[in-house]
Design a protein around this nucleic acid. Sequence first.
DNA 1: CTTGACCCTGTAGTTGCTACAGGGTGCAGT
DNA 2: ACTGCACCCTGTAGCAACTACAGGGTCAAG
Lengths: 139, 139
Amino acid sequence: MNSGILTIGDLSKATSTKVETIRYYERIGLLAPPARTAGNYRAYGDTELGRLSFIRRARDLGFGIDQIRALLSLSEKKKRSCKAIDAIARQHLADVDSKLADLMALRSELDSIIRQCGCGTIANCRIIEALAPIDASHR
Amino acid sequence: MNSGILTIGDLSKATSTKVETIRYYERIGLLAPPARTAGNYRAYGDTELGRLSFIRRARDLGFGIDQIRALLSLSEKKKRSCKAIDAIARQHLADVDSKLADLMALRSELDSIIRQCGCGTIANCRIIEALAPIDASHR
DNA sequence: CTTGACCCTGTAGTTGCTACAGGGTGCAGT
DNA sequence: ACTGCACCCTGTAGCAACTACAGGGTCAAG
């Protein structure tokens, strides 16, 4: 029922991916060059739809292109242990955690700076002062 | 004591900014073109050091270049109210909060996917399955 | 007077797209 | 048959915010 020939626009709608992005994925080798119609239009099938969905989902979860490349290549070797997959995912989780920590630290610093603002004139603005913490030992 | 002529390397060390980055800031107009020595070396003073410190601190806090441009230009109008400064900072805090929320949602999803991994073969890997949530209503 | 650390300009690469420009294709309506 | 119009094609350039050369010049120490 769903299995027909899909244009790039169909794929785009089905996966909420811009047409240009799909062509970009093809250019960088994340998607294989598909068959073409008589009029030189790209013709996709369900296999490509699945692969692109996988890619998009992984991107949404913050995986980088190279990680996705690795995941895709591993996912084809069905008999091997999925330890390598697990390792990639865990590494990514660690990266996310470290980004989260950074962002939370940043947030709290920013928040404390903003809280000090009495909204007077800029000459005595606490935010500006907090941003320019130069050692005033000289002059 | 500290007030002499600073080379770009001095500025680089003092602010933990790469030399190339300083030149980049000059190119995009965030730093004014400095004086030059006889040998065409950039010659900075404490003013530039202060300005660059400000920029780096703001970057560390996640402000974008355009926001920093606005902060710098506002910080020169000392008599005006610092409401505009406050608004930029609050906007940035809101952006950070929204990024944090996204990242935390992502983290928990990633975590739950990883937790399902029994580390069997890839053919039945839960991580791969979770990444390819294609509607299987057809075929 | 040479060696090495520094500086200069200019350009290209990074990541993951996005946005044209300048065309071709396919189909519906008249 | 013709005319729109939506869609497709390739190729290139742009975004943020740097980073990394290449291919040269300058300067102080030994």
